Amino acid sequence: MEGLKFVAVFVLLALASSLASAFDPSPLQDFCVAINETDGVFVNGKFCKDPKLVTEKDFFYSGLNIPQNTSNPVGSTVTPVNVAQIPGLNTLGISLARIDYAPYGGLNPPHTHPRGTEILVVLEGTLYVGFVTSNPENRLFTKVLNTGDVFVFPIGLIHFQFNVGKTNAVAFSGLSSQNPGVITIANAVFGSEPPINPDVLAKAFQLDKNVVSYLQKQFWWDNN
């Protein structure tokens, strides 16, 4: 019996360890500024710059005050600030984004962040936001946000923001990963390369195969 308890505890510890390492790990040094070269210490997908060569520029980004062009098919533009823009974010487990929305109808389409929870604050305008829980409930949580309001989108869940105001809208979001990733649902399903077999999508969405083929021929805009 004691042997079984030991095995059970060992399995639980192993599972906990694997789950903990599924997201950004806690750093074991002050910083690990990312570099593209391969002659450094490899940490979490990036190599570390020699600490003696690190400067303040490695932790700096400028330009989030600049409004972005939203005259595109979805009416929004996301300006990410993750480890690709600030090398010093490597191993720190956070990132940021600015989102600009065109007047009424500007949409950040349904998408997920596979590696990060998102917290969003509205700086200007009025947004209708929401997320959907996982199967089998598929419960929709929505809220209309005004300037100064904050909303959280749990990690991995499909969510969206839609400008319901008559003016431009701006929001900032913080994410719990140096590189949270983004999967825009329509783009992934109907715009994959190579395309998903139309028979699969026709059955999955209960659509006529011709409708699926039509959707796969459309241009799916990437607003990131």
Rank of each mutant, 00 (worst) to 15 (best):
P198A: 04
N187E: 07
G165Q: 05
P27R: 03
Q29L: 04
T184I: 15
G93M: 07
V164I: 06
V9H: 03
V81Y: 10
A97N: 00
Q29W: 02
P180F: 11
P109I: 07
E118R: 08
V54Q: 03
V200N: 03
T79G: 07
Q206W: 01
T117H: 04
V33M: 11
V81W: 04
F190D: 02
S18Q: 14
G130Y: 13
N187K: 15
V144N: 05
F153N: 09
Q218T: 00
F131R: 02
G106H: 02
L175G: 01
T55L: 14
L201N: 03
F141G: 02
F172C: 02
S173M: 08
K5R: 13
N146F: 10
G130V: 11
Y128D: 11
V132M: 10
A22R: 12
G75W: 12
L175W: 01
V78Q: 13
K57D: 13
A20N: 11
L107K: 05
V9Q: 11
I155C: 08
I86Y: 07
L127D: 01
V81N: 02
G125Y: 00
A186I: 06
V152D: 01
T167C: 05
A8P: 01
N36F: 08
H113D: 07
K57V: 04
A97I: 00
C32F: 04
V83Q: 08
L157R: 09
N210Q: 15
T112K: 14
W220P: 08
L201P: 08
A16M: 14
V41Q: 15
I119R: 04
I86L: 10
T70Y: 04
P67L: 03
F59R: 07
P136L: 09
F141M: 10
P25D: 12
E118F: 11
D149N: 14
I158V: 15
T38Q: 15
E56R: 11
S76V: 05
V121T: 14
V189Q: 10
S95V: 05
V200H: 08
P195L: 09
P51K: 08
G105W: 02
Q218W: 01
T142L: 03
G156W: 13
A22H: 10
S134E: 14
N72V: 01
G93H: 03
F160G: 07
F31D: 15
S177A: 13
F219W: 09
N210H: 13
G165W: 00
L127G: 01
N90I: 03
P87R: 15
L201A: 04
D149C: 11
Q85L: 12
G130Q: 05
G88N: 05
L15N: 14
A169T: 03
I155Y: 00
V212C: 03
I99L: 03
F190P: 02
S21M: 06
L19Y: 14
L64E: 02
L28H: 12
A204S: 11
V212W: 11
V129E: 14
F60N: 05
P67N: 06
V129M: 08
G174F: 08
I119T: 10
V164T: 09
S95A: 07
V9P: 00
D24G: 09
D199F: 10
T117Y: 05
V7E: 09
V121G: 06
E37C: 12
A188Y: 04
N82R: 11
P198M: 09
V211N: 05
V41P: 03
V54H: 00
T112F: 12
L92P: 07
Y101P: 00
Q161F: 07
S62V: 10
P195M: 06
A97S: 11
V122N: 05
A169C: 06
N146P: 00
L157C: 07
P114L: 14
